[in-house]
Design a binder for these strands. Structure first.
Length: 609
DNA sequence: GAGCACTGC
């Protein structure tokens, strides 16, 4: 039975219309802002109408998949994992009775590799399609194809109310439903003149807001750890000077913060709270009680420069859609206000949407996945936005060199094995080769710990300890081996928490590395039975060097920098490397990224190129 | 002598 709460949701009045539309069309589009109830209700409507159907609902983020399944289970008063369940990495909470499965986009792509017909499901819902992640774009392409082969299959695309025509054209459907949500209005204010420095401007706006506006918490959007810490320091200083009775609690929120510090941003405060956040607060996380939003107008974007073959992580203006999304965060509880630290004129000139991810990342692993799913010609595969042809061709040729594909671009057994691992292709290649050479534990430790980010956590200004800590674990002029050693020492230590504290390590991060290692170990069991171990660092380096065949660099004395073998690009060893300030002649690296300079991250010295 | 936003298998 439908309970009263469910009937009050905006989506409820569309129930019969949508059911009818699904019956009559193979592909339908449902657009509606967050809060209209589409994600929790539509799977249930479908099930209540025909209890034989098996439904998959995809989400870009794993927490969303888990909490949505929990929410729906509660509404249907069933046990989570029975009728309704979820399936995300490290956590499969489904059973043979499960008919509504919430899963991540990446998980459904994995299922495609196992069964290209996806016969396990009758209806597939792709949610949050407007976010345009690589995974959901790829899923749309795969499902568009599959619809021709499986006439009974139904596909529902759900998105915010943007780019709907584009989706509709691509999926060749006219069945579009737009659901209005009941949200509160947000008044938007722009600054009248262009601001020189958004940190200064941010501080002034927050303080002015604080001293003149009625109660309600503030959410401030900044770009990264550095400007968040700057704003915080200046705010605290000025609050001290002003000696006002009106207190202001300053909290921070960005992904490199340890989870326990992040939690502080969610606690209710006696006084007004201001949360200084990155775009983690844009979609991933919702904070209750926010009435005011301040938007600096910038965001850090990671892109892949095709010609130079390097990643960049640089500041860029937000898109209009992003600016709206940020403003919307003020209207979740009651009428809110949004202050933009840029002029109305600047706003008008912003791009409508951010460039979709598939057009700005390296596609090596996506191409391998596509081959594993059985796509013959990936170059002509019909995606909603086609990536650069040259890049895809270069990726194909790299996969040939790794022997993942043969010379006709057909998937080899090795490529099949590689695609079964949740790793970048060069690491899959490395792990498989390392097993063959009998250095599996060393390789597993190294790969697992390199998968996790924010291994260390330092308070501002205390980072001079880093090299001291690294030297305790250092092995053989290699970040790969040194980090493997950190994981091994962590595993061997009894009191893990104090071990982490002593060495400024992030406990949760290492926990994650452990579960990554266990998962990789399980996957590897299906590929090879070999499990013998010898501690051979030279062999390790040799196999690694061969696996990172496109990531070699040599020191160029006249440039006082490294030259990448592939492109002659100049780069510097990252300060977080054990090789920082040393100048080994030849190195291999995991990643080359432009931030303030072009840096090589995770570096190992080798004897020759 | 600098420090990387976010997400996923």
């Amino acid at each position: 039975m439908l309970n009263e709460f469910r009937m009050q949701l905006p989506i409820f009045q569309f129930r019969d219309k949508i059911i009818k539309s699904i019956r009559e069309n193979q592909v339908i589009i449902i657009a509606g802002e967050t809060g209209c109830g589409k994600t929790t209700q539509i799977p249930q409507y479908i099930y209540e109408n025909d209890s034989n159907l098996r439904i998959a609902v995809t989400q870009p983020r794993r927490v969303a998949a888990m909490t949505l399944a929990e929410r729906c289970s509660l509404e249907k008063q069933t046990k989570l994992g029975q009728l309704i369940g979820y399936n995300v990495r490290f956590d499969d909470c489904t059973s043979k009775d499960t008919q509504i499965t919430f899963l991540t986009d990446g998980m459904l792509i994995r299922e495609f590799i196992v069964d290209q017909q996806l016969k396990r499901y009758d209806i597939i819902i792709i949610d949050e399609a407007h976010e345009r992640t690589v995974q959901s774009d790829l899923l749309l392409g795969l499902l568009k194809n599959l619809c021709r082969k499986r006439k009974q299959l139904k596909v529902i695309l759900m998105s915010a109310t943007m780019q709907i025509e584009k989706f509709a054209n691509y999926l060749e459907t006219e069945a579009i439903h737009i659901i209005e949500a009941r949200t509160h209005t947000v008044d938007v204010y722009n600054v009248p003149i262009r601001q020189q420095d958004y940190v200064e401007s941010m501080v002034n706006t927050i303080l002015q807001l604080h001293f003149t506006q009625p109660e309600g918490d503030i959410l401030a959007f900044l770009t990264g750890q550095e400007d968040i810490e700057d704003v915080r320091e200046i705010l605290l200083e000025r609050m001290k000077i002003s000696n006002q009775e009106k207190q202001l609690e300053v909290k921070m929120l960005y992904s490199a913060l340890p989870p326990e510090v992040q939690m502080e941003a969610f606690q209710k405060c006696v006084h007004r709270k201001v949360v200084l956040a990155t775009n983690i607060a844009e979609t991933s996380i919702t904070i209750d009680g926010i009435v005011y939003v301040v938007d600096c107008g910038y965001v850090k974007i990671r892109s892949f420069q095709i010609g130079k073959a390097i990643d960049t992580l640089l500041l860029a203006p937000v898109s209009k859609a992003q600016a709206e999304q940020r403003a919307g965060r003020a209207g979740r509880q009651r009428q809110g206000q949004c202050y933009r630290l840029y002029t109305q004129q600047t706003y008008e000139r912003l791009a409508k949407y951010m460039l979709p991810e598939i057009l700005r990342v390296n596609l090596l692993s996506v191409i391998l996945q596509m081959k594993a799913i059985g796509i013959q010609n990936v170059l002509t595969f019909d995606l909603i936005d086609r990536p650069d042809m040259e890049l895809m061709l270069a990726n194909l040729n790299q996969l040939v060199k790794m022997k993942a594909l043969d010379s006709e671009f057909n998937l080899t057994q090795h490529g099949k094995n590689m695609s079964s691992l949740p790793l970048e292709p060069q690491f899959s290649h490395f792990l498989i080769k390392a097993y063959e050479c009998g250095i599996y534990d060393l390789a597993l430790n190294s790969i697992s710990i390199l998968q996790v980010e924010n291994l260390f956590y330092f308070q501002r200004g205390s980072k001079e300890n880093l090299q001291k800590i690294l030297s305790k674990f250092k092995i053989s002029n290699s970040d790969h081996l040194t980090k493997a050693n950190i994981l091994r020492k962590y595993e061997e230590t009894q009191n893990k928490k104090s071990f982490c504290k002593e060495n400024s390590l992030n406990h949760k991060t290492l926990q994650k590395a452990i579960s990554v290692k266990q998962q990789l170990k399980d996957y590897m069991k299906r590929i090879t039975q070999k499990e013998f171990e010898k501690e051979d660092y030279d062999k390790f380096k040799q196999v690694l060097s061969e696996s990172l065949m496109f990531k070699h660099a040599f020191y160029s004395p006249q440039d006082q920098a490294y030259k990448l073998k592939q492109t002659n690009q100049l780069a510097y060893i990252h300060p977080e490397s054990v090789l920082f300030n040393q100048k080994p002649k030849y190195v291999i690296y995991n990643e080359v990224i432009l931030t303030k300079k072009v840096y090589l991250r995770d570096v190992t010295e080798i004897d020759e190129l």
